[in-house]
Amino acid sequence: MIAQQLINALTLGSVYALFALGFTLVFGVLEVINLAHGAVFMAGAYAALLLVTKANLNIWVALPLAMLASGALGLLIDQIVLKPLRGRRAHHLMPMIATIGAATLITNAAQGIFGAETSRFPLGTIPEESFQIGTIRITELQIAIVIISFLLMLLLMVILKKTRLGKAVRAVAENPQTSYLLGINVEGVFRLVSFTAAALGGGAGVLIGLSFNAIFPFMGQPLMPKGIAVIILGGMGDVRGAMVGGLFLGVAEVMSVAYLSSDYRDAVAFGLLFLILLVRPSGLFGRVLERKA
């Protein structure tokens, strides 16, 4: 049982990490807790669902298209909702409030368009049978989610660390004003990050929608507190931290079900997060940086 539970923890943790990657990117660079991330995540899932059911596309063609669509939505949110607030002396939580408005608008519009009920991808979109390795059972999709989330994390880390573009993004994350003086196209970086983060979020929506057969307008909502927990635990805007944070939450949840009580699962998971923050007040990989409330 322990082997199977470790696999369960790994796959659940990868799901959380996948959701959190784009979330943490926006948080790190734009310094906004983007509460519309769950709505973009949902939009990605619906986009792929439409492409598969209405346009009869293969899921692996639909996935990148859905990511493009949700990336565009993210860009739209940034340009319409967040850009007007940049450079104005607004309360630093105002952008977050604006994203709540965007989330409310998008999810409820989606409910108006698609209805309130749960949909799933048609049978046979992907192979659903699980196979046995030793004492554990796993599906191809579960393996894919683990691999994809690790690959995306590595890819993002390499881009951020090794490329000119990545250096620009990091510079903007550190200090937008100085970056501007250094000749970096700060607005361009913001647009790029918004697009990429939303595309990642949308991709996560597709994979999670595929994996759990639960596509509905509010599908992003239960993931929001968990996503916030993961990115803050990992440390502000740290891609590696989001991965570790996601895995940690997955392990904490699965193990508290396995060895304690499923009744207290969320209390155990969030209680542990609480304790970790007391020991490491800036998260696992956080820069030691005082930011005011």
Partner: peptide
């Protein structure tokens, strides 16, 4: 006896425990 919460989509931890 196992429980889950509203909004959960992954029930494998509980089911693995049940299977045992």
């Amino acid at each position: 006896t196992e429980t889950f919460a509203k909004g959960d989509v992954d029930f494998r931890a509980q089911l693995t425990k049940i299977k045992a």
